[in-house]
C-alpha cells in the first residue's frame, strides 16, 4: 500500500499525542468515529481567555492516514481562533497529506473532530456560536 511521505512522517513521528484533563473548562474534547468502523479520533483543544487555541492534543485508533490526519489537524489549529479553526476544511488535510480517495474519510473525521471539540468547549462555557 503506497503512503505519501507526509503520511509516513506523521505516522512515524506523530505530533501532539496525548490528553488534557477532560473536565478542565479551558479544554474542548471531540471524540468522533466508532471502533467497528475502524476509526476513533479524540481531539482536544486548550483555549485561552482570548479564544485562541494555544495547544492541541490527539489520540487516534485507526489506519496510518487517520493518525496522520489527526496529527496534522493538531498542528493546523494551534494559534488559531475558534472562528478560524472552524474554517478549516477536510480538503486542506487531503491536499497536505496527498490522501488517496479511499482515505478521504480520515480527513473528514479530523474536520469533524475539530468541530466537535469546539462545540464541547462552547457548551461547557455556555457560549452560543
Amino acid at each position: 500500500m503506497p503512503y505519501s511521505d507526509k503520511v509516513l512522517d506523521h505516522y512515524n513521528n506523530p505530533r501532539n499525542v496525548g490528553s488534557f484533563d477532560k473536565s478542565d473548562t479551558t479544554v474542548g474534547t471531540g471524540i468522533v468515529g466508532a471502533p467497528e468502523c475502524g476509526d476513533v479520533m479524540k481531539l482536544q483543544l486548550k483555549i485561552n481567555a482570548d479564544g485562541v487555541i494555544e495547544d492541541a492534543k490527539f489520540k487516534t485508533f485507526g489506519c496510518g492516514s487517520a493518525i496522520a490526519s489527526s496529527s496534522l489537524a493538531t498542528e493546523l489549529v494551534k494559534g488559531k481562533t475558534l472562528e478560524e479553526a472552524l474554517q478549516l476544511q477536510n480538503t486542506d488535510i487531503v491536499e497536505e497529506l496527498a490522501l488517496p480517495p479511499v482515505k478521504i474519510h480520515c480527513s473528514v473525521l479530523a474536520e469533524d473532530a475539530i468541530k466537535a471539540a469546539i462545540a464541547d468547549y462552547r457548551q461547557k462555557n455556555g457560549i452560543t456560536a
Binding site: 468522533v32 468515529g33 466508532a34 471502533p35 467497528e36 468502523c37 476513533v40 485508533f61 473528514v108
Partner: peptide, 20 residues
C-alpha cells in the same frame, strides 16, 4: 483513545459512538 478508555475502566461496548 480506546486503550486510554480501557485503562480508565470504561467498557467500550457501553460507549455511545458516532459512526460516520
Amino acid at each position: 483513545p480506546l486503550w486510554e478508555l480501557h485503562l480508565e475502566g470504561v467498557d467500550l461496548s457501553t460507549v455511545q459512538w458516532q459512526p460516520h
